[in-house]
Amino acid sequence: MRPSPAETVRTLVAGRLPGLVHLTHRPGPHHVRHVTDPDGRVLLLVPVVSDLAAALRPGPGEEDVAVVLDVLDLPPAAGAPSLGRAWVSGWAGELRGDEARAAAQDFAAVDPTGDLLDLGTRFRMFRFEVVEARWERGDTVRRVDPEAYAEAAPDPLHALEPALLADLADHHGDEVTAYLRRQLGLTGDDPAGAPRVVRIDRHGLVVAYGRPGARRRIRLAFPAPVADHAELARLLHPMICPRAAAGPGGPA
């Protein structure tokens, strides 16, 4: 198993990565602080005094402003493959009163910034429902159904991924290498081509191996998607404790 395109887009736009906002018929793009709420709607925290706030002001005869949020993945370690780029679009409108306060709670669940305390004075909250979503990876762009996007959930390990990879490499390197060699059926001892985990998600591990210039990547799938860090730790125990009896499944 591997993340679906809808799940990947939800993960990329969840709010852990920098985002840019493009607005129709307006200058830009603009850097923006954003998150998504539990329904996948995009929340934008915008300084009152900013070019973006001015651009989000509806023109004559407009109620909302057409926007596109553009988020590019940042690989968690050197040599790790990118998840690509997500583009989600909709019509952004400013929230006020109870709606703004409820949205601030959703924002804080992802990014508990103190600037939310100044909502209504120094900052404004905008929201849009995703009506179009695209996932770009390499030379391929795939459209993602908005309903599938809304029903998907961000990967719970994405924000932890850099720390997880560093911990495996720095504190359990020998055990991980030995485990991966057994799983991949590799023989010999070539440090230059030793397998290593380069990405982790709720569905499994992405492993790179082979000498420079002939590197290969393969996915080792978990028996079932993990729900959180604690479940991942239990599942990976055989990797760092060779005497354990069970572990991730074989290549997928």
Rank of each mutant, 00 (worst) to 15 (best):
V206A: 08
R199S: 14
L186D: 04
V198I: 15
G173H: 15
Q183A: 14
V198C: 06
A194C: 08
D174V: 13
D189K: 03
L168S: 07
V207E: 07
P195Q: 02
D170W: 03
P191M: 10
G213I: 07
H171Y: 14
T177Y: 05
T187P: 00
T187M: 00
G210F: 05
A192V: 10
A192N: 04
G204P: 14
R181W: 12
G213D: 10
T187I: 03
P191D: 04
G210V: 09
D190P: 04
G188S: 05
R199L: 11
D189I: 01
A208P: 01
D174F: 07
R211N: 04
G193H: 05
P212Y: 04
G188E: 06
L184H: 07
G204L: 06
R202C: 03
A178R: 11
L184D: 07
T187H: 13
V207P: 12
G173K: 07
G193C: 03
P212I: 01
V176D: 03
R211Q: 10
R216K: 14
L184G: 09
L168M: 14
A194Q: 14
R199H: 08
D201V: 06
R196F: 08
Y179P: 01
A194S: 11
L186I: 02
G193Y: 07
R216M: 10
G188Q: 09
L186H: 05
A194I: 10
I200M: 06
R182E: 15
G204N: 06
A178L: 11
R215H: 02
L186T: 04
V207S: 05
G210N: 08
V197W: 07
G213H: 13
T187D: 10
A178N: 07
L184T: 04
E175I: 00
L205C: 09
Y209P: 00
R216Q: 14
D170C: 00
D189P: 05
D190G: 04
L184K: 07
G213P: 02
A208R: 13
D190C: 08
P195A: 01
D189E: 14
V197H: 05
T177F: 02
G188Y: 14
A194E: 15
R196L: 11
